[in-house]
Amino acid sequence: MWDALILNPMLNSLLFLYQLLFQNFTLTILVFTVLIRLLTFPLTNQTQKSQKKLAALQQSEEWKKTQEKYAKDREKLTQEQMKLYQRAGVNPLGSCLPMLIQFPVLIGLYQAINLAMAASPVQLLDLSRHIYPFLSGASSLIPLENRFLWLNLGLPDPFYVLPLLVVATTWLQSKLMTPPATADSQAAAMSQQMALMMPLMIGWMSLQFPSGLSIYWVIGNVVSIVQQAITTPPDWRRVFSFRAAPAAPAAGKSQAEKSKTDKAKADRARLAAPVTKSQGEKGKGDKSKPDKAGQGAARK
């Protein structure tokens, strides 16, 4: 099912393009990725619009007031938030669903490129099953040309240039796609972590990838970045700011007020620390770090 609907059409389109584009596989990856991104543009655009609307709503005064009002009643808060979503015509999952629909396309494209580069006999044997019989001349294209600059597209980049580009472009793309900080500070922190962890993870994987796949990844990222920059001109200062984005106060308090409250809580906890048995023991055993026990109590 997957092969018939996603993988085979993509693989054969890739081979067809390769034939047209002077049998240059890097150029083929470039053109094919751009074409696929153009085809999925309506979905991407919908995702971005949804994200923008959602962010605007979450930064509105009404949203903040609701947060403040129902800070102690999560159930009621959720109900009120849903009403706000409805009133503003925003679907909170509206940005996720188009993205999820795009995933099969992205994964299929990735698999098609991987399959087309078949670097081992078993992979090449697998490739033979996927080529349409009516695609005349496709068999004579095999194996695809695998040289590009210093690269063998079937092997990892020996100089680590591509993994670095993968990290840089994935990071930039994640930062652009991450909506501005919202009232939900936990979600903001998770988004921040995600924007950092994903590029590192993909970069680490690309150390072992055939460089053709890394090229695909970089091209895909660059296309996304350009798309994003055109449709929603980004705030470059926010993008290149390495500090955590200031989250909107959770219950209508200003950031300064919130810090004050946190500090007061921590102080109270520190004073209370030696009272409990376990903390008292901890304090005895670790006299050089009295603050840590206090912080632990504050978290409790």
């Binding site: 959602l54 991987n114 994987m205």
Partner: peptide, 21 residues
């Protein structure tokens, strides 16, 4: 929404890892 996004990101990463390695 954030959890779904993170899940989706991890899903993609896993799929990619499965294909590439």
């Amino acid at each position: 929404r954030s959890k779904l996004l993170i899940f989706a990101g991890l899903l993609l990463a896993l799929a990619v890892a499965g294909c590439g390695a």
